[in-house]
Design a protein around this nucleic acid. Sequence first.
DNA 1: CTGAAAGCGCTTACAG
DNA 2: CTGAAAGCGCTTACAG
Lengths: 342, 342
Amino acid sequence: MARLAGVSIGTVSRVINNSDHPVGEETRTRVLEAAAKVDYSPNELSRGLARGRTHTVGVIVHDITDSYFNEIVRGIDDVASEHGYLVLVCSSYRDADRELEYVRKLRSQRCEAIIFVGGGLRFPDYLLELDAQLEGLCKQGGAIVMLAPTDLARPRIIPDASRAIGELVDHLVQLGHRDIALIEGPPHLKTSVQRAEAFDAAVRRHGIDPDPGRRASGHFDREQGAAALEELLDRGKPFTAAVCLNDQMAVGCLMAAKARGLRVPQDVSIAGIDDLPVTRYLDPPLTTVRVPMRELGRAGMHLVLAQLDGLRTRRVRNVRCELVVRESTAQAPRTSARRGQR
Amino acid sequence: MARLAGVSIGTVSRVINNSDHPVGEETRTRVLEAAAKVDYSPNELSRGLARGRTHTVGVIVHDITDSYFNEIVRGIDDVASEHGYLVLVCSSYRDADRELEYVRKLRSQRCEAIIFVGGGLRFPDYLLELDAQLEGLCKQGGAIVMLAPTDLARPRIIPDASRAIGELVDHLVQLGHRDIALIEGPPHLKTSVQRAEAFDAAVRRHGIDPDPGRRASGHFDREQGAAALEELLDRGKPFTAAVCLNDQMAVGCLMAAKARGLRVPQDVSIAGIDDLPVTRYLDPPLTTVRVPMRELGRAGMHLVLAQLDGLRTRRVRNVRCELVVRESTAQAPRTSARRGQR
DNA sequence: CTGAAAGCGCTTACAG
DNA sequence: CTGAAAGCGCTTACAG
């Protein structure tokens, strides 16, 4: 194509990149014409090799079909595409090995940044290896951003639901609930641990002792959230409300409660966390804690850009979450959920 | 790192790639040790340049937060990751320029394939330019796969809902519905056009003339689906059932109907197409046509792999879709929806 | 079994 | 204003 235009490849490069190096008008036109004729597509690989920039960022999520994650990816992508970046989406399914494998791959691809959307796993070996990989990426000039609690000392923006979880518990207690069941996420996931701690602290403030008998894990998953509710029901310890530490589990929990013949919220109140789009379409619409997912994604990508621009930071930024009261929570019934069961 | 191991870069390459070119055992260990020590991360860019393979595929969707698309991406990613491919996800929002821009970028990145998940737009200029870009990508050795109806002659796997739409209409007519409203998608989108044609053909089979007065566009979008129902209601032409050409619109339609005080399905039956996960959690659960999204994604990526393996094909494969009857459709009421409105 | 060297397609000082 | 050439980090015939 340089031959077609009758110029050197250096000149071609200059006009294609609109470099500020001067190029003769007539030469420029000749190059542009030749480029159009042969349908020239500049090779980003070699360009990346030569310039050290790939215009790609990697994003590691739990599962792209989970709204929590795809909403955040949407936010990331909004600003990424605005700035000419392409996004590599990697679903790790919270598997440490899968995640490490992806990090290695993204590094090899010379992504300019990796954004971790999901919560940090808490396995020591994994943390060590992950930190080494991330250090390597940083040395290559890459940026790292974490959008969830983690044990790694990396720049991060974290949705902090603690305060809103407190408000949620206040709300329930005001409605007369004292026997509040808790459906947790994966025990090795920091997000779940933190949310559970916030819940425990909140009920204690009301003089209620967190009761292991009213607690089950739904692994942040819809089906397992449903199973957790059933387990709690089968355990026989009465409760009038169930707090699910994410909305996916709350969806499952709600369906399971209905399937057991419980009316929500008359027989049992149910609340979640995240405020996924689906919560509005449930019957009843779900009381939950709003995590500003799209904004979180946008902020995350902006932090990436700032770092690539030379910003050095280890500052941790918290993002406020708000209680959203809808119709799945109401006055506690006289008889508790278990007995109310038909 | 070659220096650290005291060998040539050629030798390093051979052991890192586990090439079948013989390498001395002791040399191999030395290289591996050096690699571990410096935390060596092979540069995929240069590797891609030298070998002409990038191990990436681009996927163009409408919007990653739309379940229809992220479910398909999930299927693609399942087999892509199995085969060591990374996935670049591009949301075009059905904008022709955005889509073309992404195609150019993916080409520049030398993606080995582009999978188009969404339906084809039908703008002549766009089609021309797109086809040129795709031809370019093919010449570079890339594969193309379309997972929706399109006017382009490229390998494709298409979910064919026509037959199931016919069954849906039969189902409604059997329930006594004759005044059936239709909420369509974007008029320039082939998927929407085809589904509408299938609907028209089906009602005609029952001696019903498609009525423009009972037809509105919701642009495949939740909010606009709701607006479309309201418009139909306001138009004053009575109907006892509304068929939405995708589930997103059906969700909006259902909420709007309830907001207007209509009972579903007693006052009006509502049906969608796609069988998104959310349809199960609605009240009432939605009657719809199941499009096997995840399988479609998997099949799409398999077709990519086959093409990269040298398969030459222009064959069009259709994927069967099935009617799923749930609770949002029932016997037609005596009085039609409009009058039933409170 | 090992290395030197050409080549992948660019960018970018450096000369002219 | 233009070109020749080094360099980005690999792979892979080609010699030895």
